[in-house]
Amino acid sequence: MSYDDVEIEDMEWNEELGAFTYPCPCGDLFQITKADLKLGEEIARCPSCSLYITVIYNQEDFMDDNKSNRNSKTLSSTKLPQTVTVA
């Protein structure tokens, strides 16, 4: 059973992992790549445990994203929280 439903705008883009992430209660991160999203995949899994979440998003956003090659920048300007920059 899906642990939770999470909107894509509540997920953070993680450059290192190349994936959108969301905190997992095990301490790790649920992850889903842009390629997954483009294919219509809606399950983001945690690499450390048995849990997964359902990602709420509009598939078309990611089809366009690929064509324009603007990647996360397009998204972050509208909905995504800023990525982490450590001072």
Binding site: E12, P81, Q82, T83, V84, T85, A87
Partner: peptide
């Protein structure tokens, strides 16, 4: 992590 403003410094910077 300060990316949501949760550090309260008036910005979205992180601090180590």
């Amino acid at each position: 992590d300060g990316s949501f403003g949760q550090l309260g410094h008036g910005d979205y910077e992180s601090h180590s």
